[in-house]
Design a binder for these strands. Structure first.
Lengths: 338, 338
DNA sequence: TTGAAAGCGTTACCAG
DNA sequence: CTGGTAACGCTTTCAA
């Protein structure tokens, strides 16, 4: 009825085209590409030849309508400079060889975790790895009913999704052991503002306070925006106060870099102001920076997150919660006070 | 015929559910959510109420079957530490407020650009931003026939897709003006190995060679793996040679950091060995690093890439090629030789 | 082992 | 302005 053979618009070949070319049914082609049970070698050969000749590639959207998308989504607030890079690398490594494709959706201060997660659910990804530190557990649980989910950095133990977390209290202990051992008494903790309820930073802060009290010292917690710039300003404030600290324990490495920047501007060395970070970003190990920090093994976190997610995708329903023990990397940014 | 009202399996509501709840047709619902022409305010109100009550969200896959995916894919070889972070930020900024969602697919040494681009095409994204520095132009042109595409960092001017590039020759000129002006004569260029044909590094290198010859000096080009580690090793080699350089012009900042690391290990300052990078990553400006480098305005690149892509998505077919002029950021890693 | 046909949720085209 | 209906490309029964 319609045009049968006008030119040949380079339309993408479809499964029907392959079936026609091979002289078989669509169902047969479908079975071949999924290597499902019940195809004779002869038919497989013909179909594969037709696929190669036509350059056929299945469209993901059409498969999604009936089954899986073979896509894993990863939500992250930031990109670069942070732990996230390591997590992504671990995840990619663990996913290698599987049929799943990893896609990353960063918030970058413009998209909330909620928006990103909903958008991933709308795309019917087969599973989600999320940071989602500013999202209430219940909201995540709702989404996790439709989509397998692993959330990083949460210390609670929800039923509807898995978690992978580094032991933040233990990490703070390592830091405090180190600083107290060096002989520091005026130690300030610099952390993110606002302190979102579920963020791991809260656990670091609370353990810091406990340890200071246990040592008979006065805890001082300073809040600043979660950027290097924010940390620079906060450091200036602290150093200008009546009773300036001899050591600053920063909530994460990006802030610690800000502290180091402020210290460098004032010409202060480690024995004037010791600095400890948290995350062990790649830069921390650079000899020009040499930041003492806590390594919570981001690549391991990413790897385990993917394993758990694949288990869930394959049917597990009871929750699992993994916890990693961090390690302290002592470098030149800390020293005994003068 | 089938079950009409068994419990209520928390199945995701569909457009049909909304239509039933509101007592209208699917077509009407479709029009409302796309706010297309021809819906009475009364109907719109009823439909919107039903959508809210059911918590309905359209499935992307079903839309894709008939039209767009409202997704932009970004292919990048690496994540973190690099220019890419800035590009992504610019892109996200430019995309804010549009209905499009940005997803990132990194290669991370496991996936080739070809694999990633094909996978994005399979997902029927509405447009692609690619780095794809290891892919021949013709291969990209093939894919660009099906999907609007903007490629970054290419100096060729292909018809089938747009490009956004920083003027690498001009950047190399800035570096050479600076180093020659300081009085350096033994300047080595350290660049990536292998030098992929389309990568911008080739243009930096070639201009370096030209400028050295024009100044009556002997060009020395050293190749190393594109990592900080590779640069450390190469620097040791260079400094151990008969005629060690007094300045190293590195192909990008990650390598320059490696050079700085090696120099720091040997206790060398800027007047012993000046170092220039390329990219102006955030870290380069940190006072502990203070790397002289070329800023090619990554966020602007990302922003413009998205504008071009949206133009293409909206129907433009003739190619556009944008070129940015870079700027030199002079910092403490360079000084006059002793 | 193979093929035919019924969906999956949406959009677009028509009649009313 | 509204509602029915035919696609879109694939998976999945179910018969042959």
């Amino acid at each position: 009825m319609t045009q049968e053979r006008t030119a040949l618009p380079p339309r993408r070949p479809t499964m029907t085209d392959v079936a026609n070319a091979a002289g078989v049914s669509k169902g047969a082609v479908s079975k071949v590409i999924r290597d499902a049970y019940g195809v004779s070698p002869a038919m497989r050969a013909r179909v594969e030849k037709a696929i190669a000749q036509l350059g056929y590639r299945p469209r993901v959207a059409a498969r999604v309508m009936r089954g899986q998308s073979f896509t894993i989504g990863l939500e992250t607030p930031h990109l670069g400079q942070e732990l996230q890079t390591l997590v992504v690398e671990g995840a990619a490594e663990q996913l290698a060889g599987s049929p799943y494709q990893l896609v990353i959706v960063p918030g970058l201060g413009r998209l909330s975790a909620t928006e990103i997660l909903e958008s991933l659910v709308d795309r019917q990804v087969d599973g989600i790895i999320a940071i989602a530190s500013d999202m209430p557990t219940e909201a995540i649980e709702t989404l996790a009913q439709h989509t397998p989910m692993v959330v990083l950095g949460r210390h609670s133990r929800p039923q509807a999704f898995d978690t992978v977390v580094s032991d933040d209290a233990a990490g703070a202990d390592l830091v405090m052991d180190h600083l107290l051992g060096l002989g520091h008494t005026r130690i300030t903790h610099l952390t993110i503002d606002p302190p979102t309820a579920e963020a791991p930073h809260v656990f670091r802060r609370d353990r810091y306070v406990e340890r200071m009290r246990a040592a008979g010292l006065r805890p001082v917690v300073e809040y600043a925006p979660s950027t290097e710039r924010g940390a620079v300003a906060a450091t200036s404030r602290l150093l200008g106060s009546d009773d300036p600290p001899t050591a600053i324990f920063a909530g994460h490495d990006a802030m610690a870099l800000g502290v180091l920047r402020a210290a460098a501007d004032l010409g202060l060395g480690a024995s004037d102001l010791s600095v400890v970070g948290y995350d062990n970003i790649e830069l921390a190990g650079h000899p020009l920076v040499s930041l003492t920090t806590v390594d919570h093994r981001g690549t391991d976190v990413g790897r385990v997150a993917i394993s758990l997610l694949l288990e869930r995708i394959n049917g597990r329903t009871e929750a699992k919660h993994e916890c990693f023990s961090p390690a302290l990397r002592v470098r030149r940014s800390t020293a005994a006070p003068r």
